[in-house]
Computed example of a mutant assay.
Amino acid sequence: MRKYRGLIFFLVPGLLMYLVFFVTPTLSALGLSLTDWNGISPDYNWVGLDNYKFMIGQDPVFHQALGNNIKYTLFVVIFQTAFSLLFALLLVKNTRLNIFYRALFFLPTIIASVSVAFIWIFMYDPSIGFLNLTLQKLGLEVLQHSWLGDKKIAIYSIAFVQVWAHTGQVMVIFIAGLQSIPHSLYEVARIEGASRWQTFRRVTWPLLAPSATIVAAYTTLQSFKAFDLILAMTDGGPSYATEILSIFLYHEAFRNFKFGYASASAVLFMLIIASITYMQFKILRANRVTY
């Protein structure tokens, strides 16, 4: 035990940072969620679980934000995973052309989210935007929309931007997973007469399950915590149509000065993310065992 005693000191800096920057703020938020603190006054009242009761039972904006968050997350997880896997399958070989396309698809990831937001605000502009002008030139005026002004499609318009910006990032994870699969397994499948779909279903996908687990968890967290992209593009509008939980939390704290209420939403936010991530890991692990 003595020879490991010195190694313990290497854990101390990381442990201190974890305590200071995660445990302490989490406990503080939990305590503040039981008060009506406005973020400015030194005085506040203890309200117990009233913030949680009102938020879950009576606050229509919170309910809409949660619904928007679910729509946004499902859209991003489904399409970002599908596109990234498709591109990974097409670009898995290390040829010069494939490496060029990988870099091209990865490029939006390194652009700041606010810059991406302004690019797509211009693209979505109903009058001079590239998208509507292209539809007009193709004679498809019926498909023209106010992409960020229509309450029915605004959340999906922003979700598409997230998919566009981060598909290349997730593609890299899938490519790493594909390249780790032994080539001999594909040779055996070809000798046995397996079709491409059978090879993918019986060989590629089961061995790609660890990468898929990482992608699903990361994409869910990424989309549930989306903030700067939505804030820059719509600020939650129109009429709360694009307001998700992170935007709701920000508005309650820094615009309405309800820090106690915002802390309660932060606690619920954390519990929702933890529950979804746990269920994802359980489902994906179960699927991996059945293969």
Rank of each mutant, 00 (worst) to 15 (best):
I272Y: 07
L49Y: 13
T24D: 08
S41M: 09
A226M: 12
S223H: 01
G57Q: 14
A165M: 05
A165H: 06
V116W: 00
I173Q: 01
F174K: 01
V163R: 02
K137T: 06
L19R: 06
A216Y: 00
N51H: 14
N38L: 04
F130H: 04
Q179E: 07
Y72R: 00
G31N: 15
W46C: 08
H166E: 14
R196A: 12
A264P: 06
A232Q: 10
V161P: 03
H183D: 11
F257A: 04
F122M: 13
K152V: 10
G237V: 03
R288G: 01
Y124W: 07
D150W: 05
A241K: 06
V170F: 00
P42A: 08
A209N: 01
T95R: 09
I128P: 02
P108E: 03
F83S: 08
A159H: 03
L34Q: 09
K258D: 10
D59G: 08
P126A: 10
V215M: 00
F130K: 07
F22C: 10
N287E: 12
G31W: 08
T35N: 10
L138A: 15
M123E: 02
L143C: 12
L85R: 01
A253S: 15
A117L: 11
L16P: 05
D150L: 08
V47G: 02
R96V: 14
T290L: 09
L229E: 13
A29R: 03
A117H: 07
S211K: 02
M17P: 02
F54V: 11
G14Y: 13
